[in-house]
Design a protein around this nucleic acid. Structure first.
Lengths: 202, 202
DNA sequence: GCATAATAACTAATGCTGTTAGTTTTGAAA
DNA sequence: TTTCAAAACTAACAGCATTAGTTATTATGC
């Protein structure tokens, strides 16, 4: 009945809080309004639509994720930094399941806005690999490989695709994956040093 | 107005066809009924609910994916088989975007039925790695690593997360990823041979 | 201190989902 | 030809996002 002084930030915060507790990548406007003590359509005084709200939360999640990553690799370089990054990546995904899911569900090939918002997420990995003195094209490839491993792992854990053969623990699998990446990267660097060319196709 | 002799198989087939053309992992019952020339609630004479239909399509997609994989690695072993498998994996995901998305969106930790249906998908990879003479626990780990790379790649391509730094092509990135996996696997095998133990943590 | 304008709440309604209950039609078996 | 189950239907509901139009509150200018 009253103008409660609700702000967009408060709505986003409530949405984030909801996502954090449920582990789901979204909230219904109905649920959100209920939590804020208003009726659903009133939300439209502050947000444009669900997509708009999603973008706000998306931005929030990315900022959080990136700062988490940056903190983890501070004062570290090379393999040590890569390993620390991977651990930070895994721990964030575990601690913020809903937000991670959101980050990995929003963008699409067509959505230029989301892709641009996600850019910092890529830059952290690229700068991580810059230590290795690779050529620019090689970095572009290996950054993809690294992110594929990281996300592929989290994603399939989340889906339950890693709970077969469960005798062996996930942490060890993750360590092996990261080590595999580093071994592969080192092998590539040896080849590059010997031939002066990236030779990954023979 | 008439009993059209519709069967569950026909409904599933139509749903698959719809998913194949749209690239989306699902169809609305309304759209499905419209395509079949009946009213929405009539579908409930054949299916239990949307989840039920989803499972049917899921099963169909898995069968298709698995047979595609098996055909690709027939008469191949070792690295050659691994590479052929990876190519088959990538090509299926590209050619059947909607079905692949469905496969990678249905299961969850809690959904035992879906997890069991997905089992053949894991067995193909496990049998692929059996060639290498690894211990059972090592296979459990490396099978995860391989699938993480494969799905991680497709997933992020799909999300648009690989379209930055696009100067370099995706195919080459994929090749590097598979080679990285093989390099890592070989490195592990050398270690195992030397020490008689899996030593991936030092 | 009071009128005014902007803000932010509201109610009512629409269209899209999936779903259920109850009813009629159809086609095949007795 | 009657009978009965299968498979279609209509009508209705609940939950979702969303829009239009309305009222109440708050802050601003005179």
């Amino acid at each position: 009945m009253s103008a409660k002084g609700l702000t967009k930030q408060m709505i986003v915060a409530e949405a984030v809080s909801c996502i954090e507790t449920t582990g789901q990548p979204g909230v219904s406007l109905h649920e959100l309004a209920r939590r804020l003590g208003i009726k659903t359509p009133s939300l439209y005084n502050h947000i444009k639509n669900t997509k708009d709200l999603q973008y706000e939360v998306f931005q929030y999640a990315i900022d959080m994720f990136v700062s988490h990553q940056k903190a983890a690799i501070e004062n570290k370089t090379g393999d040590e930094a890569v390993q620390a990054f991977a651990e930070a990546y895994f721990s964030f995904a575990a601690a913020h399941k809903g937000l991670y899911r959101l980050i990995m569900s929003i963008p699409s090939e067509e959505d230029e806005q989301a892709k641009e918002m996600a850019l910092p997420l890529l830059n952290t990995v690229v700068s991580l690999l810059s230590d290795y003195g690779l050529q620019e094209e090689a970095i572009a490839h290996w950054q993809r490989v690294f992110r594929a491993i990281l996300h592929g792992f989290i994603s399939q854990e989340d889906l339950g695709y890693f709970y077969y053969y469960k005798s062996s623990d996930l942490k060890k699998s993750r360590d092996i994956a990261v080590r595999c990446f580093l071994d592969g990267l080192h092998a590539q660097m040896r080849e590059t040093r010997n031939t002066g060319e990236q030779a990954a196709d023979s």
